[in-house]
Nucleic acid binder design. Structure first.
Length: 266
DNA sequence: GGGTGATGCTGAG
DNA sequence: TCAGCCTCACCCC
């Protein structure tokens, strides 16, 4: 159930465990049998993340492209792995480590042209592009759609999902219905900067925690209990943690988005 | 034990 | 715009 921070974590972990090694690659489920056969026995060079996409680079083979979608899941086993489940699309293993992948939206091989096309349709990734908000600003300036919809559009910015879009807009005091191309320069910079900060924190900890610890009576983000880690996401009608006004919910880009009418004026 | 929604996206119409 | 795909935690009985 991943937004970009989790995908970057997977990339880093699997790079640490598997890069530079020759891997046994199979598809227990069979749906990726031909691709797995093509990769089996090859050396994995590295694993890159871009937005919510993973790209595995191999010696003498096309890139493996994985997108987890809503349900995809990796499980990593050291030493004795359990047998793969019926739904295991991909198994990659080397001595002492096995990675299973189940339920992905995408698991395919990409030739260089297809990979270029994929990367070309992804907007800047806060975990790749760093503090420069320029590409994000340029991307927003061309869109009249609401900022709440723009943040979920992976062509505009890649790696943000439904939790981060609501939380980032709250943190920046921006109403989700405001037109993307109507934001002030300083709001765009603040939004991008927040995205970089929050996704980095999420990638470090593996959790999405956006609240300022003191606001919920904690000293560190890591000690905030489940249920108090977010300001607005999934908190319909509950009081805003800052102003007490009931959190509102609406539909945007086919998904629910939560916001505080008090802290995020129209 | 069944039903449902969910941190996502694509492609048909 | 909407159905479809994939899995599982959580809710309610």
């Amino acid at each position: 159930m991943p937004e970009g921070h989790a995908i970057h974590r997977h990339a880093r972990r699997q790079r640490d465990l598997l890069a530079g090694r020759r891997l046994r690659v199979t598809s227990p489920q069979g749906r990726f049998a031909a691709g797995a056969a093509r990769l089996d026995g090859r050396r994995l060079q590295t694993v890159d993340a871009r937005g919510k996409h993973l790209l595995y680079r191999w010696e003498d083979a096309e890139a493996l492209h994985v997108h987890l979608g809503l349900f995809g899941k990796f499980t990593v086993h050291r030493n004795d792995p359990p047998p793969p489940t019926e739904g295991t699309r991909l198994a990659m293993s080397a001595d002492g480590v096995t990675v299973y992948l189940a339920g992905p939206t995408i698991c395919e091989l990409l030739d260089p042209d297809a990979e270029d096309a994929l990367l070309a349709r992804l907007g800047p990734d806060p975990l790749v592009h760093g503090r420069d908000s320029g590409p994000f600003a340029a991307s927003l300036s061309r869109r009249r759609i609401p900022i709440g919809a723009a943040l979920l559009d992976q062509k505009v910015v890649s790696g943000i999902g439904n939790v981060y879009r609501a939380e980032l807009l709250f943190l920046c005091g921006i109403h989700p219905a405001r037109p993307a191309n109507g934001l002030r320069d300083e709001e765009i910079v603040a939004l991008w900067d927040r995205a970089v900060t929050e996704l980095r924190a999420g990638a470090r900890s593996g959790r999405i925690v956006t609240v300022v610890p003191a606001e919920v009576g904690a000293r560190y983000r890591s000690e905030i209990p489940k249920g108090r880690r977010l300001y607005v996401y999934h908190r319909t009608a509950e009081p805003c943690r800052r102003c007490g006004m009931p959190v509102a919910v609406t539909e945007m880009a086919n998904r629910s988005i939560w916001y505080c009418p008090g802290c995020q004026p129209d």
